[in-house]
Design a binder for these strands. Structure first.
Lengths: 150, 150
DNA sequence: AATCAACACTTGTATATACAATTATTAACA
DNA sequence: TGTTAATAATTGTATATACAAGTGTTGATT
């Protein structure tokens, strides 16, 4: 649906301004969808994100700073998000022996299993959304988004 | 910058998945930029959004529900956001005399003046960002985003 | 007219982000 | 070696979203 219609906008805006608003709006729209699919599984989008980041390390640990760098919201509080995942038994948290300022985080089998279960639903949801774009369009969209960030 | 590089991603994802992640990431990136430009002016992105929505009504009032419908986050708490704007003297809040369940909100001269002052900075920021895309690219991006929402 | 449902908004709670201040540990170096 | 600076994480506070429950008002039905 057109952005103007969706937000009942009355003011006319130029192409660049429209793109900016649309990026913000569609990002939030997508994020809300993602969260709604994750909610029944008891984790938030950012917690899911952390689990995915850790899985990508194939068993190796990452410290909090390295996790933060890989997240959508760099300023979010990784300490507290990680603590929630730890309480659920999804990750392990060990003070780094070489440098006791650092904390090594790694995903546990329970976390991997949960991630796999959740991913099934998320993938299903993504497929529905993405059926609106051809592969070429998806590629083109990603390119334009990379470009807008400079 | 490429998304993979920006998030230090190691896993390879398909074009559709990449587009989805990129929409969420770039939306958050843009939103954070917007907020950083607004912060010195003492308002948040969503408060700014409400002021713009009200200005678009050219003097007419909107009730809370109508404002909510026009916002990026429909489930956000418009009552509390509006109250903050009222405390700053930017908007007027009147219980609707025809239907006392409704509350009419309209922008005050102080709000209009503030919006104008803030807009100068926001526009400047937008111009910098948007200089990365041609007008045709911006149009194409907005179209793809409309399409992804179905 | 009295009752009940729908409506519009408000309030409470959990979660999350942004940012600043603080703590603990390590590195630098005079 | 002792002091200071830098680093990594934690904690505190303000703000915002999501969602559910609650309040007051109006409309509908009998």
């Amino acid at each position: 649906m057109e952005l103007e219609e969706e937000l009942k906008m009355s003011e006319i805006v130029d192409a660049h301004h429209r793109a900016t608003l649309n990026v913000i709006f569609t990002g939030a729209w997508m994020s809300e969808r993602m969260n709604s699919y994750l909610k029944p599984h008891g984790i938030s989008e950012q917690q899911f994100n952390i689990l995915r980041i850790l899985r990508g390390q194939k068993g190796n640990a990452l410290n909090l700073q390295q996790i933060s760098e890989r997240m959508v919201h760099k300023m979010s509080n990784t300490t507290r998000l990680v603590e929630k995942l730890r309480l659920k038994g999804f990750i392990d948290r060990q003070v780094c022996p070489n440098n006791r300022r650092k904390v090594d985080i790694s995903i546990l089998p329970l976390g991997l299993a949960h991630l796999e279960k959740v991913s099934l639903d998320v993938d299903k949801a993504n497929k529905t959304i993405e059926s609106h774009l051809t592969k070429a369009e998806a590629t083109s969209l990603a390119l334009l988004l990379d470009k807008i960030r400079g």
